[in-house]
Design a protein around this nucleic acid. Sequence first.
DNA 1: TAGCTATTTAAAAATATTTTTAAATAGCTA
DNA 2: TAGCTATTTAAAAATATTTTTAAATAGCTA
Lengths: 91, 91
Amino acid sequence: MGLANTFKVLSDPLRRNILVCLKEGKLTAGEIADKFNITPAALSYHLKLLKNADLIMEYKLKNYIYYELNTSVFDELIIWINQFGGENNEK
Amino acid sequence: MGLANTFKVLSDPLRRNILVCLKEGKLTAGEIADKFNITPAALSYHLKLLKNADLIMEYKLKNYIYYELNTSVFDELIIWINQFGGENNEK
DNA sequence: TAGCTATTTAAAAATATTTTTAAATAGCTA
DNA sequence: TAGCTATTTAAAAATATTTTTAAATAGCTA
């Protein structure tokens, strides 16, 4: 959904922390909810936003839903940021 | 005010566009308001957020207030993003 | 199949952000 | 000084986001 959406989704600390957790590997929705002490419904809302922004991917297995990181969107973000200097900025 | 604040401030498209404008050089509050067709009061609110996030700096001259870009905060942002791959990601 | 578990969805309530409007400030210029 | 211009501040209104609660779904397991 584009850069605007990426920025919006990353503006929430909980959502950023979910991504950091997923660096270690895939997790089920329930496992994530436990880590953050948030209700399943609230978590589900955040996971949906992350998924819409293509920051995570999901797949179903047994009656769990697994989530995993999708880092490809970060490239676009880096490009945006680099317009303000990039490489080795003036220090 | 830290990374969390940087992300929050950058989540708004208008604020990002203000930064892009300021790449060309300093502008007064009024000049920025003109470019974006926004009321001075609303703009002032956004400029305050950008300033709190250290993304812009201001100085007064005559009875204008000039704003200019401060890119130093982007470094921290890049570091955060790079934890998810960085350099040349797996393509 | 019956009931359980994991998770989502929907609607309402709670909360946070943004805009608007009006008034205040501060430094010009005549 | 008087009045003008540029801009901010404050409060309220408008809007958007997040959480809560309850119900729905879907795939297990006995």
